[in-house]
Design a protein around this nucleic acid. Sequence first.
DNA 1: TGCCATGTTAATGC
DNA 2: TGCATTAACATGGC
Length: 259
Amino acid sequence: MPELPEAETIARSLSPHLVGRRIEAAAYPGQRVLRGKPAPDISGRQFVSIERFGKQLLLRLDGDTLILVKLGMTGALLLDAAPDAYTRAGFTLDSGSRLLFRDTRQFGSLNFLAGEPTGLGPDPFELSAAAFAQRLRAKQTRLKVTLLNQQFLRGLGNIYVDEALHRAGLHPLARASRLTAGRAEALHTAIVELLTHAIAERGSSISDYVDGSGARGNFQNFHRVYGREGQPCLHCGEPIVRLVVAQRGTHYCPACQTR
DNA sequence: TGCCATGTTAATGC
DNA sequence: TGCATTAACATGGC
């Protein structure tokens, strides 16, 4: 559910309420959210920072403990929400507030790390257009698959991949390595501008995404292809087509997006 | 009832 | 070997 703009919005909404606060107690109802791994005792620990890492959240505690929160499809971090049957973790704070991790489908997880997270590709904002183009050149996979790959680039999910490809005028099934340098750099520009706009609108709320205070995002009103199958392309009027690529619904304009 | 869903990963097929 | 597809995870909405 949450992709980079949603994770960024969650981090920004939680940060002022969490940084400097101490954890008095932690609970993990059902334990599944821990994926069989033991949770260290974090009572007494203080939040140092709340950061976005790709589409995940990184909660830094003093004493060099990190909690990497994978939101999966339906995960949410909520401050002072009422616990329900889908509450998978709860942290009681010295401020009297309570941070909950709510996750209906249970694809999300909490991961306690002793060091920096590894294994994911660069952040879109920290990569130059030239470096992005160079990485693309090495990939034989289709653009849709390449951009969804978190090892290639961290933070894009199904919505923003479709939106970025439309804005760049590129077909989702085009081979990454076949793009000219100019088109590859234009794709990077489209991604950065798209994510910047989406963050400014506090992310996309399609079904149930909300930030840490329970507020919905507004960027769904700016989607040009995602969820618009059969509706006219906002650029040329041609009906938006939906196909399935890597088992993900893929939306594009057959007239504007060339292969 | 059947299909769909903002994610990730293992298994299988070509 | 490399890439594409399928299945699986768990649950709710339409």
